[in-house]
Design a protein around this nucleic acid. Sequence first.
DNA 1: CGTCATGCTACGATAATTGTAGCAACGGAA
DNA 2: TTCCGTTGCTACAATTATCGTAGCATGACG
Lengths: 108, 108
Amino acid sequence: MAKQAGSNTRSVRGSRTGRPIMALLDLLGRRWALRILWELRDAPLTSRALRTACDEASPTVLQARLDDLREAGFVELGEGGGYGLTAPGRELCETFMPLHRLAERWKK
Amino acid sequence: MAKQAGSNTRSVRGSRTGRPIMALLDLLGRRWALRILWELRDAPLTSRALRTACDEASPTVLQARLDDLREAGFVELGEGGGYGLTAPGRELCETFMPLHRLAERWKK
DNA sequence: CGTCATGCTACGATAATTGTAGCAACGGAA
DNA sequence: TTCCGTTGCTACAATTATCGTAGCATGACG
């Protein structure tokens, strides 16, 4: 089970066309991916803190998503520990900020 | 297997807090959800056309996601057939437009 | 040494997704 | 009418992804 950030063979799910946007939509469509980015929006979190923030999600998936996001270059593991957003990661996260207001209005 | 749009009991995955943003992030984090919204961004598509646009994804999931998105009020089925975005759906989709440019730059 | 927290993994159970095939209903020719 | 093609949608078994719990190795602090 290749988990480390680095090149792996798997062509990103649903993007066999090679269009970057498809790869991105696919990556963000994996479980907890969006949530992780969201929870890291303000400050870096340790893996445990992130798990708590993510409603005690299984560490298995969290690690998998963290690896995905690290490989994609959106998240990084700080030297002193703790996951944080990279520059592209922050930029990506900015994109989702309008979601907050939209969600409040959406509510249902 | 409750599929039809309407109220169901299932509290949205990963949002037991009740915060709308979590419910939204969860909904969008299901497979093909983002992709479907993306493919419908310009014009409505029939279920078959949507399937083609989504790289021949399994109709099972497509239907499931379509039902999810319909229940959420982001997608609707036109009278003459064909799935299209609702007003909130279009608004949501607008949010993701910056992703296109971001993805191109991201590429890797 | 013990204690605690870190990032990370094992593993069985459960749920989601895939792929293929097909259904019923409707519409437009013939 | 019958035939043909399309629509939205479903059945089913096989494969993956995810869950939940437990635990490991490492490092920092006392």
